[in-house]
Each structure stands twice: as C-alpha cells, then as structure tokens.
Nucleic acid binder design. Structure first.
Lengths: 300, 300
DNA sequence: GTGAAAGCGCTAACAG
DNA sequence: CTGTTAGCGCTTTCAC
C-alpha cells in the first residue's frame, strides 16, 4: 500500500496533523520536526493524494481547457502557451476537444465542473444562441474565452484585434498596388470573421475603392478550403493579384493550388496568411499578421 | 451552495444512498423512484462531485498524457487521437509538456500520480539512463510509451516500424536512380533514429551501394535544422539529388532552403518527409511515410 | 509547537 | 428495493 500521512505519522511518532503541516510547509513547526518528517516521507516515497486534499481545500489547482480542435496548429500553439503558464503557476490542465460542436462543449464543461476545476479557458464553438449565453453566464467558476469573442462577455475575452489586423493587411496590399484581392474569409457567424471583414472594408473605404463582392468568400478555414477556392477562382477565370487568407492553414492550401497552376508567389500572386504559426515563418514568402494570445492566457 | 446528494435526498425523502444509486444507474431501483430522483436532480442542476466520488472508488477515469512538446504537430496529432478515444471511453485527459527534459517528465508523472490517474501515456524525453528505467519500472499504474521505444519496455510501446519505414524511403529513392541522398536523421540517442538508420543502411546494402557518410547528419529535428542543413550543404557544394528527412517539419525547412536557392522540387531535388502530418498532403510534392499511432493509442 | 476530533461528498458493505 | 453505517486521506477548527 502506498504511503499516506498516517504511515509517516506512525513511523515518526508525530500526529497526522503535524505531518500534514510539515509537508505543506506550514509555519510554526520546529526545524527539527520538519527535518525528521521530511526525510521519512522521502524514504517512504510518499506521494500526496491530491484528490483527498482537494476534498477539503477549496481549490483543485486544475484548470479545464476547452479547445475546438487541438490538432489545429493555431489552437495547439495557444494550448502550449497556456500549458507553460499553468506549469509555472503550479496548475494542471484538463483538456478536451469540442470539434466545434456546442453540445460537446457544454458536455465537456460539465465534466470539468464535476472535476472541480478552478477555472476554464474556452475556445468556444461557432454557434452562439441565447441558450449558450445563459449557459456561460451560469458557470460557477471563472472563465475566459480565447481567440473568439462572445457577445456579452467582452471582459472575459482575450484576443488580439482582428479588425486592426485585417485592416493592416488590406492597407498593405492596396498600398502595393493590388486592385483585385481575393479574400478568403472565415465562417460567417464568428466574431473574428465579422471583425476582420470590418477591417477589410475600412481599408477599402480609406483608399476610396469599391469592393468587388465576387472576390470575397466565407469558408470554414481548413486547408482544403484555400486550395479549392483558388482552383475554382482560376477555373472561373477570376482575376486577382493577391490573396488574403483567414489563417495560415488556408494560405497553405492557396499556395499549393497556385504552385500547381504555375503561378509564382509573390511575383504573380501575393499571399497573406493570418495567425503567424510557428510554420509560417519557414514557408515560402508568406507574410502573416501575428496573433499570439499564447502567453497572455495563463491566468484563469 | 451547489446541490449534492444530500440536497436531493432531503428534497425527495429518499436516503442519500438511494439517490447515489439512481444517479449511477444502479439496477434494483424501481422505475418510479428513479424518475422522481432524476427529475429532482435535474431541477436542482445537480453536478456530481467527481473528486468525492474518486475518493471512494478505485479509479478516477483520468489518464495522464505526457507529451514532449504539444505544439509539435506530430505530437498534437497523436494527442488528438488519444483525446478522441478517451472521450469515447469516458476518460478525461490531464496533459503536460516536458520539453524533452527528463526531470520535468519525472516531476510531471509524479503530479499525475498524485492526482491518481488510472494510466499514463508517455512520449518519453530523449534521455534514458538506469535511473529512468528504474523510475518507469516503479510506476504504480499502467503506462504505455508512444512513438518512442525504451529499452526494457518493449511491450509498453506503441510505435510503427521505423526501420521498415526508412528502408522503404531509401528503396524508393534508390529505385528512382538517386545516388547522392542527403539524409537528415534525428537525435542520435532515441530509438526512432537508431531504427531508421538501420533501415537506411539496409536499403543501401540491398542495392549493393556504399554509404557516403558525408551526406548523413543527425539533427534535433526542428524546422531550422532542415533549413540550415541544406544551406550548409549547398555552401559546401555537397552534391545531392534527394533529401530524406527525419520528419515533415525538417522537410519544410529543407524545402524553404531549396526554393530560396532556386532549386525546384522534385525536378532538381526530391524531398521526402516522415510522419505524414495533416499538412504534408497539402504541401508541394512531399512524399511521406505514414506514422499514425493516433487511434491505436486509446487504451491505457 | 503539537495533538484530537470533525467532516469534505461520496460509495460500499451489510442489513432488512 | 431501500436505509444505515462506516470510512476514503486529507485539512481545518479548536484545544493545550
């Protein structure tokens, strides 16, 4: 049987309580007692029982991380940032994926609550209805949203400014003389898309240019989307000299299609991603706007 | 105060025990009682306390996942596989990163044990000494190693056959007529490298060719490594018509360097990765050997 | 400085 | 089918 406080107490002749205090570095314990007990604990290979401990104490030092898709490099970089910070703070992470389904998200959060997490970091699924708002509002623990903004929970959100980011992208492209920019935006109902579309429109307005709606597409944001979109555009003989993508993954798909069609980057077509994944800096010319809530995320 | 069994018991007039049984779908409870209790539980928004529960029951339905670096796409795809399976089985995942440090790994595992995980899935850090072997051997819960093989724990390892994989890569390249193949292998002391090097040598032997040691490099396996290695090779005027990489990430670095040097892929130089990341299929010609323990990993 | 006792919310063993 | 009792390993009063 694995050693417990009682084992150590009996072995040293002190009370369970004293042992517990020593092991938690409580003050008002004599140096000597502390030494004796600690060495005994070591000898017995004592491993504290965090379960029993969090039964009595108010917190579990655990946070729940709800990710939409942890194999998506963007999310996994964010998760890594969280992980580092959590580590530093002595917290553990419970992680789960929702695959962009709100039901799964709700289920997962309930599981986390049942495990008494001290806080939640949520990368919310697309969908946001009355019900979801109410659900979030009812959460009994602190929570933050990462990467996406949910109506009514502004103060709970950590994000970089999508509007500014996309405006800068378009300002840059327009400044480079591009007049036909293929814009592969994201899913219509999420905050990032809405914000970025605003930024895009702003840049056009500033430059006094009209927007060609035929060049704008709202896509889920996977690699295939970028690939297909450019293929289609080329097939339909759409003219464009630049492509602005919703994220770096889409950009990769775009680049693949362009190179298959013997178009060079950036000479024939300029491509811009979004997110600045670890990868992106090592890809063929792919300018990307940085979006790294990564380390900002460590305090739930 | 959050509802507990006692709350429901008092509200319905049944005993705590009966409530507990109903909520765990224990047999031998009348339909009627069950209905009453369940609806009351619903009404009160009862969320079971998994902590208290695992205090008594032998398992916590939690597994610990020890990853070397969860922002590395290979690991994150594996983790995603685990996550899906865990989900299916009703397990939760505690995740931590070791950054390839064995001390961190040991620390992390202890933390997981302290949280009473039912099992561990470990992507072990490079280093493997006597001490580590002993440490693994002393683990009081079931564990498996994913992706890497540790001496003495063959039966605990889940991996695809590195030797065969690399042999096939070289067979293919040699078959294509390549006689100067730059081989960017992995860190010397890990099992994958050793196995793959064996496979490489085997392919050369089969073909009756000598191995040019100047074309073989053992690198940590990051993107920069591939990038730098090819740059160096070109600077030193090393001749090569193909590059075999330790993983797809290295291959990306390689491709970047080649294209900066105006070498076309695969006309001038053929590039082969390893791992077959989600990405890879969408990159410019990058043949990759598949390595997906992902779903195999779900039973700890 | 240290110890004794109570109890966290739940499950399991034993009754009936 | 349901209730009573005990106790998981720890932290927290409250004593002395």
């Amino acid at each position: 049987m694995r050693a417990k406080l009682k084992t150590i107490a009996e072995a040293t002749g002190f009370s369970i309580n004293t042992v517990s205090r020593v092991l938690r570095n409580d003050r008002r314990i004599s140096e000597k007692t502390s030494r004796i007990i600690k060495s005994k604990a070591d000898e017995l290979g004592y491993i504290p029982d965090a379960i029993a401990s969090s039964m009595r104490s108010p917190n579990t030092r655990t946070i729940g991380v709800v990710s939409a898709d942890s194999s998506n490099p963007f999310f996994s970089e964010v998760i890594k940032g969280i992980s580092e910070k959590a580590d530093e703070l002595g917290y553990q992470m419970l992680i789960g994926n929702t695959e962009e389904s709100f039901e799964k998200e709700e289920h997962l959060i309930k599981l986390f609550l049942s495990r008494k997490v001290d806080g939640l970091i949520i990368m919310p699924a697309y969908n946001t209805s009355e019900h979801h708002i109410a659900f979030y509002a009812s959460l009994p623990v602190p929570f933050v949203f990462a990467g996406r903004y949910i109506d009514g929970f502004a103060s709970h959100s950590i994000l970089h400014c999508d509007e500014d980011g996309e405006r800068d992208v378009f300002r840059y492209l327009i400044g480079q003389g591009h007049r036909s920019i293929l814009y592969l935006s994201g899913p219509e109902c999420i905050s990032n898309t809405i914000e970025r579309d605003k930024g895009m429109m702003e840049a056009y307005r500033e430059a006094g240019l009209d927007i060609d709606q035929r060049l704008i597409f709202h896509l889920p944001g996977h690699m295939e989307d970028g690939y297909q979109a450019v293929n289609n555009a080329i097939n339909k003989s759409l003219e464009f000299s630049a492509v602005a993508c919703f994220n770096d993954i889409v950009a990769m798909g775009v680049m693949k299609s362009l190179s298959e069609n013997d178009l060079s980057i950036p000479d024939d077509v300029e491509v811009i991603g979004y997110d600045n994944l670890m990868f992106s800096q090592f890809m063929n010319p792919s300018l990307s706007t940085v979006d790294v809530p990564k380390h900002k995320l460590g305090y739930a």
